[in-house]
Write a protein that binds this DNA or RNA. Structure first.
Lengths: 220, 220
DNA sequence: CTATGTGAAGCCCTTCACAGCC
DNA sequence: GGCTGTGAAGGGCTTCACATAG
């Protein structure tokens, strides 16, 4: 009885494009542009206008025929689906170079993701400060478990990732952003997204190799 | 006259899975496992066995019916398509927290990607050392242009990314790994891959919001 | 009998094209 | 007249199921 919208499933491909739409809309709002057509926004985001309209149609009917979309309203609506109003608590596990870089990344907080703690295994790092955070030992994870963690970011070596994830899941964490180059196994209802730098480079390597072998690979 | 294999296009989705297959194969090779079936490798990578076989069939016929795939041979073949034998020169532009973390990431070199230089705009950073590299000023990009750069990694703020990419393209760089949260425009034949941390978190945010709104979102 | 390689079926996503509305 | 919202067509990827090979 929350909302009687035709609760249809939203394709994952659509969901993956929403952050980009939102970012572009926020940019044009800064330019005081009040209204935008599907053609203009599609151009900015590098997608097809029909696809953009279809994507938005999964979320609701926000446009005005003959006119376009109201910038502010569309930002509000996409934001609602992405839950940007909520502030999410994020912990980072792994205080290596990557973990520290992520700690310092202001882009997260602007989008409602609030890094609350960073953990590491290495006792010599404990207590050291990064971006205002004192590094805690991972064994404190279970102790601090009162803290409501919405998302955990895994920035550990590959070999430790699965163990850490199991522990996070056991204290109730249900969303994981994994930077460790390894496959994470989780039960149902746990959301894992993987970011693998080396894999991205290897995909680029495929295209370089294709060109060298004289195959077009009609590029990325 | 290189190879008279039926030069069919390989689906991008298949290409994107190859690095994962390769990684799992290398892991099982370390365990001295000589041979693997499509079912076993599919299990390890979290994919369907039929999909795995179809993916591999785009690259050639490497298996033995009734037996499976020879680990070493399959590693060799996938590696060939990803061009792992070649050593690729990589430059990193942007010596902020992320750029420095990437400089220190050993995983690249292991996979044939050799970071040769890191550039920044900030004059106060020039000459500073990171992981053995002296940071250079981006205006030296064009000067050093003799260096054969295979891949450039963009780790600059969003506002500077497009300009840097244009300069890289003008000196002949044709592959870009972009970490800046902005859309990069390039001409034909230039390969750009984007990695956007905030977008990944926002996608997770979508699932969290779906759960809160009582929608299943049948998770990631 | 076992496991690969592959046409065919099924499914999902993208694109088209136009009805509907401003 | 212009642009959105959407059924339908089209295209591509995944999965099935079996012929093929060892």
């Amino acid at each position: 009885m929350d909302q009687n919208r035709k609760s249809k499933r939203i394709p994952p491909t659509t969901v993956a494009r929403l952050p980009l739409y939102l970012r572009c809309l926020e940019e044009i709002k800064l330019k005081k542009i009040r209204s935008i057509s599907s053609f203009e926004l599609a151009e900015l985001t590098g997608h097809n206008a029909a696809q953009l309209r279809k994507d938005l149609s999964y979320l609701g009917e926000f446009g005005t025929r003959g006119v376009g979309y109201d910038t502010t309203e569309l930002i509000r609506q996409i934001g609602k689906w992405l839950g940007v109003a909520a502030v999410r608590s994020v912990v980072i596990v792994g205080a290596g170079h990557l973990g520290r870089a992520l700690c310092n990344y202001a882009g997260f907080f602007n989008k409602g993701f609030d890094v609350v703690d960073i953990y590491d295994k290495d006792k010599s790092k404990i207590g050291t400060e990064i971006a205002g955070f004192k590094i805690k030992h991972i064994d404190e994870l279970e102790v601090n478990n009162s803290a409501n963690i919405d998302v955990a970011i895994i920035a550990t070596p590959a070999g430790e990732a699965q163990d850490i994830v199991d522990r996070l899941v056991s204290i109730g964490v249900s969303s994981i952003l994994n930077f460790a180059p390894t496959k994470i196994e989780v039960g149902k209802g746990i959301c894992v997204r993987n970011v693998d730098f080396s894999a991205e480079l290897q995909i680029i390597g495929f295209h370089l190799a294709s060109i060298e072998h004289g195959l077009s690979s009609d590029c990325c």
